[in-house]
């Protein structure tokens, strides 16, 4: 009897844990892996009303985290939003399902310029979702106008202790490579060494290396300069939610342009549902609501007539063609990424 009681206790304790790991399975569910604040919340309700499918969203903060999830053999997600170079790596690894374009009646809405890019030449595996360019967010009250326009400003000792850098290997290395005039996809060890040296030289001027916190700190006026993406700049410069003293420029010598995309993991059993959701997000009205919420530029050409003037007139949202032409997309570097990791280690040793 006593033995029975202790066995029972053990079983009960184990059973207590079970509900924590399983989800309630009422109706169909689509599991998506996304960035924070990257899907207008009411659209989930609307999609559920139209199709009965529940969207369950999990959020990550870096492509590297997304890759770890997507490269696992038991990836539990049905739709993800990785960036260009991550897509390229996932394609090489055979981790993505081919998207059936016949199910995407709204695909015609995507601007031709953003289709067929190097990371996925025929868009077999990925559909562009948002894009943006890397640039410098600055506080007009703290920065001389004469210093603007070039990456050199981040090495200007006048702004020592007032600079926020982006705590991400590829982005920070890209800033240093662009400053030195090198390709942001270089695998030349000498160039990467020089870039690491440039970051080491910049380090004493940097107030902190952060990720999402940069936005809040800049809005509070805690720094003069910060490296951010154009989509985040839109939000930071917003007269209501942000700080009207802030503005944004993309250095004339060029920068990085990135695309966040919609991809379907190869092992999903819900490809049809995922495609249904992609098509839903490509609808002009839905895409407009979504892009106005996210604040990142949309590759969907059909949204432009519907967008609020605030966005169409905004140089951080409606990025001039002259700038986009000078920007380069990140490529997947394969094993050579270790050169970047080692350079990064050296900067922070």
């Amino acid at each position: 009897m006593k033995k029975f009681v202790s066995v029972l206790m053990a079983v009960l304790m184990a059973m207590l844990l079970v509900p924590m790991f399983s989800s309630c399975a009422s109706g169909e569910t689509l599991n998506i892996l996304n960035w924070g604040d990257y899907l207008e919340p009411s659209l989930k309700e609307r999609f559920k009303e139209e199709t009965g499918i529940t969207i369950k969203e999990k959020v990550v903060t870096s492509n590297e985290e997304m890759l770890i999830q997507l490269e696992a053999d038991d990836c539990p997600y049905d739709l993800c939003f990785p960036s260009d170079y991550a897509v390229e790596r996932l394609i090489k690894g055979g981790k993505l399902a081919e998207i059936n374009h016949d199910n995407l009646s709204n695909l015609v809405n995507i601007d031709d310029r953003y289709m067929g890019l190097d990371y996925d030449p025929e868009n077999k595996y990925s559909i562009p979702y948002t894009y943006g360019v890397l640039g410098v967010l600055y506080n007009k009250t703290m920065v001389d106008e004469a210093d603007l326009g070039s990456w050199d400003i981040l090495w200007n000792e006048k702004y020592s202790g007032e600079i926020f850098m982006y705590d991400s290997i590829r982005d920070s290395m890209a800033v240093a490579l662009l400053y030195l005039g090198y390709d942001i996809n270089t695998t030349n060890p000498d160039e990467l060494n020089a870039a690491a040296d440039a970051l080491i030289a910049m380090k004493p001027l940097v107030k902190a290396w952060l990720t999402d916190d940069i936005k809040d700190s800049m809005i509070l006026g805690s720094g003069a300069l910060a490296v951010v993406y154009s989509g985040d700049a839109v939000w930071c410069c917003d007269p209501d939610e942000g700080n009207p003293d802030l503005d944004f420029f993309v250095p004339e010598s060029g920068s990085n342009i990135y695309f966040d995309t919609m991809v379907i993991p190869v092992n999903t059993k819900k490809q049809d549902m995922a495609e249904q959701f992609i098509n839903f997000l490509l609808e002009p009205e839905v895409a407009t609501i979504n892009t106005e919420f996210i604040g990142y530029s949309s590759p969907n050409a059909a949204v432009w007539p519907l967008l609020d003037e605030y966005y169409t007139e905004n140089h951080m949202f409606n990025i001039p063609d002259a700038i986009i032409e000078k920007c380069v997309v990140f490529r997947d570097l394969g094993e050579s990424i270790d050169l970047y990791n080692n350079a990064w280690d050296r900067v922070f040793e």
Binding site: S62, E64, E65, I68, D167, S168, I169, V206, K207, A208, W209, L210, N341, W344, F348, E349
Partner: peptide, 18 residues
């Protein structure tokens, strides 16, 4: 803000980013 790098941060970075 990365001005102070601790050993735990290095390990975290090796797993999550590198």
């Amino acid at each position: 803000g990365k001005n102070v790098m601790l050993f735990g941060q290095v390990i975290e970075q090796k797993f999550l980013i590198g």
